[in-house]
């Protein structure tokens, strides 16, 4: 009994340690920059201000970056869902020459890490003169085979009876896909959608090298760029306000959709 109580105590302590850095950043973001310059320990004196957030709203960059991140993340999510659903249905239900071979090739794509393709990808977009554009930020993410794999598995799990009943009801292949099977894949769409959105929102390397124009930064890259000039920052408090502003939306979304997010991430890893 005592052993389990000790373990529980340790876990609670660890949870507190998980929270401390976040609280620290939150506290710093609420402090006057000048006061922080002299001593950050002044956070304990209880004089807080919303000035950093006021400055943040006066600075258009962050909103521009958030808008970019939203466009890229939603665009990629919509694209992945569409392509993966069509391909998943095709691989799971239809017969065409070379189907099995193609599916194996796509599965092999799962093993290719970003590092192995990113240099050539960057070259290709350079040749096409497409860097610093939304298509450049979205397109590479659409090629991830995970979604196709997931949707194929899901379509395969739907009883073929449904298709057959619909065939007897005179439905076309596309009607079967669109009206009957797609609505049944909503749980998988949710999983794949959340996972894709999260990955797109947090993606760092590709937007870092593709979006070099400050106006095309995603939020991740934008926060990185302000961090790079750590020394010449407009103030620690202001920087921390940015961090809070960048992190808080994700945390709030997480608190609301925790169940689905955890499922999506665990499902993606456990493939």
């Amino acid at each position: 009994m005592t052993r389990s109580r000790l373990a529980t105590g340790l876990v609670i302590l660890a949870a507190v340690l998980m929270l401390v850095p976040l609280l620290w950043v939150l506290a710093l973001s609420l402090k006057d920059n000048a006061e922080l310059m002299t001593d950050t320990a002044s956070v304990f004196n209880g004089r807080f201000t919303l000035e950093n957030y006021r400055n943040l709203f006066g600075n258009g960059d962050v909103f521009r970056w958030i808008a970019n991140s939203l466009i890229v993340s939603f665009g990629m999510t919509a694209g992945v869902l569409m392509l993966a659903s069509l391909a998943g249905y095709g691989f799971a239900r239809l017969e065409f020459p070379g189907r099995n071979l193609l599916f194996v090739v796509v599965l092999l794509g799962l093993a290719v890490p970003e590092q192995a393709v990113i240099i050539a990808r960057h070259q290709m977009f350079s040749w096409l003169g497409m860097h610093n554009s939304y298509p450049a930020l979205i397109l590479p993410g659409l090629s991830a085979p995970f979604g196709v794999f997931l949707m194929t598995q899901y379509f395969r799990a739907i009883p073929r009876d449904i298709d057959e009943a619909a065939l007897l009801d005179g439905a076309s292949r596309f009607t079967i896909f669109w009206k009957l099977l797609l609505p049944l894949t909503i749980p998988a769409q949710a999983t794949l959608g959340i996972f894709t959105f999260l990955s797109a929102w947090n993606d760092y390397w590709w937007p870092l090298i593709s979006a070099t124009n400050k106006d095309m930064f995603t939020l991740t890259v934008g926060i990185a760029s302000t961090q790079m000039n750590f020394a010449q920052t407009e103030g620690l408090g202001f920087l921390m306000a940015q961090a809070v502003f960048a992190g808080a939306p994700m945390l709030i979304v997480y608190l609301f959709f925790q169940k689905y997010i955890v499922q999506a991430v665990a499902g993606a890893a456990g493939r």
Binding site: L86, A87, G90, I119, L142
Partner: peptide, 28 residues
């Protein structure tokens, strides 16, 4: 049942897959 038109369902993805993964991999 073997019908090349069925391949139209997988074609959009395969196009992106080849352009964004297979080609860069080979090029790399």
């Amino acid at each position: 049942r073997q019908d090349w038109r069925s391949a139209l369902f997988v074609a959009p993805y395969l196009l992106v897959f080849v352009a964004m993964l297979v080609v860069p991999l080979a090029m790399g």
